[in-house]
Design a protein around this nucleic acid. Structure first.
Lengths: 222, 222, 222, 222
DNA sequence: ACACGCGGGACCCCCCGTTGGT
DNA sequence: ACCAACGGGGGGTCCCGCGTGT
């Protein structure tokens, strides 16, 4: 049914190519709306308008609103694993890996709309509880394992690894749900990365900070 | 508004007593729904059903869904100030005050449904942005000031006070938006307090934690 | 049941006196709201607020919104008959009686809120169709009979009496439903009486108006 | 908006054709309900049921109840201007034009549901006050100007033109708000045209009607 | 007994997610 | 890919009765 002849195959591939491109555009637009409005307040009309389509056209690519959110969630799983394998090279010390993963995650959260949407959907969506529980547990377990490895290698305080992982996830959730305009946004576009660095620094600190005087920017802008 | 005489006053007070009790029940039920579902997914029917009333009955106490959320927000402001004045007794060291306030806040978040609802509404509600921005900024400023005082008295690392405050707020938001059932919930009801203790410990730590081996519960269950 | 004893009778009468006064205030307030808003848009809250009562208190005097409108309608019947008997004195010529009745009606429409409310309710109310049909037919028949008498006495053009009566009623309805601010309202408070006079003049005219030039105010302000 | 090619254009026109037909059906159904019930008592459900649609389907054509009424009002403006230009041919005497316009208006009021709805909405709708004030003033001014012209040409009594125009409008309003079944409705379908003829005859009469005896039908059936 | 106010049920407008005909 | 239509609530609010004190 798929391959009938050479010409048809070529046309089908062209169609699929085009369909795939459209699907990506839909996904990105949906991510923007989901990230900004959350699941329930987001409307398919807003998604369709953003890419000059109609609501009905979306149903050619995704059978429901839920499936749109699901696709975003699924994709985030891949992003996460790639993030982990990217930093967790053989021979790397766990502390560095942990830092790389966490800060890389923070960076993705800042630059990638789909990542933001996925994390927000993870806590917003009522009907995807099972889908998100998987990837959530996976991420949390990975983080906990990294923490444990870092502790064994030394240099990371003996906090409960699972608690640390949970805290990191919680901060991610919180950032996605912060009221617009809140937070210490002063620089032009550096929004939330200093916050991640502060958190990571505090969690991984093992030495006394010295007797330096307290002053603003001491961490966020050395 | 129309206290005319002693007898009438008595009757009015009785009426007001009853009405006030109902109002409180409505507020609590609304807080439960808002905390669990967020603003947009919460329905007035759910609020009414929870206390055995109808939607129309709610109209006598709160003219709109927005006003319900607004009442919760307003109340949270009072709770916060009482929390601050309670711990910020003259002569107390800032570090202790900060700890008391943060942990007290965490405890309220765990026990008081309305507090949970308020914090969640702060980041959920589209129409109350202005109302929440006030109390939010107030809370964040108070926290930052406490951090600064703690740093001046010594014993608190020289992080950016505003960043620390923002992180604390973010964690609060994140906890309210964590997917149900996530997190290291294993004990019967100790939900999120260990997480707050971990965060506070990490932020205020100035000495090396010693060479203790890493193991679960090392912080949450000393 | 009514008169038990002298004291009780006195108290009852005082009560009834007070109740009657209240009833009148309610009726007037209701007439204002009905005349301004029509039946369906009028709310009992607006009526209650206008006299400093609660909605429930109204229920003690009138069992329903419909009964309130019904009372107004019934009262208008009495007003109408008194209006007719007032001008239809024995020995009066029918033309003068007709003019007196019509212009008196116009005056009542201008000064009496309840009359305005009644006429408006006559065409607004969905559930009082039967009650209004009676008084309506009565009024129309009376007018038609007066027209017929005036025609027999001479001096009134031979229009169909029933059609003339219907036209007069229609103008009354139209005035009550004119959009606020419409019409030739230029004088301070003389609103709609010139219109009635124009209509009556045109209907009763039998002579040529002469060759006077047309100019504004020729009829409304001689 | 997106006429891309001939084929698409054909399809779009077919689509638009269908949509336009439906829009007309909706408009007619709404006019029936508005004319019969007035604005506030009219419900969108009644409109939808009348053409076998659902409430949500209406939303695709008119975003609100108000916009439905607004479309009717706007359309009536066009009907009115066409009515005026139709009779106001160059060289026609103003008296004839006035008669043609008024009687044509009366006929439209009898045959065109939308016209009835528009006139009724003009005095019923609370939110369209500004939209109706325009067309109202326009109509009234046009009528007044015609009256003035007729007076200058001779043959029309020197009543105040604006008062005459206002009276005509008032009768139109009154007819739309007459309780159902009222009036001298006896013939099969000749409802309100005799009333208009009586009014116009009385207003334009300049000679004595002769000494004919008064009898029913003398005007409506010469 | 009378008046008051809280509460109830119904309904309206709006609008969203979703499905066939073209 | 589009348009039109559907059906289901959500929020709002109105009119009305039952229990409550005087």
């Amino acid at each position: 049914m798929q391959v009938l002849s050479a010409e048809d195959g070529g046309r089908d591939m062209a169609k699929q190519e085009r369909a795939l491109r459209t699907r990506e555009r839909v996904l990105t637009a949906a991510a923007e709306v989901f990230a900004a409005q959350g699941y329930s307040r987001a409307t398919l009309s807003a998604v369709a308008d953003r890419i000059g389509m109609t609501k009905g056209a979306l149903y050619g690519h995704f059978p429901s609103k839920k499936s749109l959110a699901g696709a975003l969630i699924d994709e985030s799983r891949g992003v996460w694993t790639s993030l982990r394998t990217e930093h967790d090279t053989p021979g790397a010390d766990a502390g560095g890996v942990l830092e790389g993963v966490v800060m890389g995650f923070a960076d993705r959260l800042r630059t990638d709309v789909r990542m933001r949407a996925s994390v927000r959907l993870a806590s917003d969506c009522p009907v995807l509880a099972r889908a998100v529980a998987d990837v959530l547990q996976e991420v949390e377990d990975s983080l906990a394992k990294l923490v444990r490895r870092a502790q064994h290698e030394g240099g990371f305080p003996p906090y409960s690894p699972r608690l640390v992982a949970c805290l990191l996830m919680t901060v991610a959730y919180g950032l996605l749900h912060s009221p617009a305009g809140a937070g210490p946004v002063e620089d032009e576009e550096q929004e939330e990365e200093p916050l991640w660095r502060l958190l990571f620094t505090a969690l991984s600190r093992s030495e006394p900070p010295g007797s330096a005087q307290a002053d603003d920017r001491s961490v966020s802008a050395p």
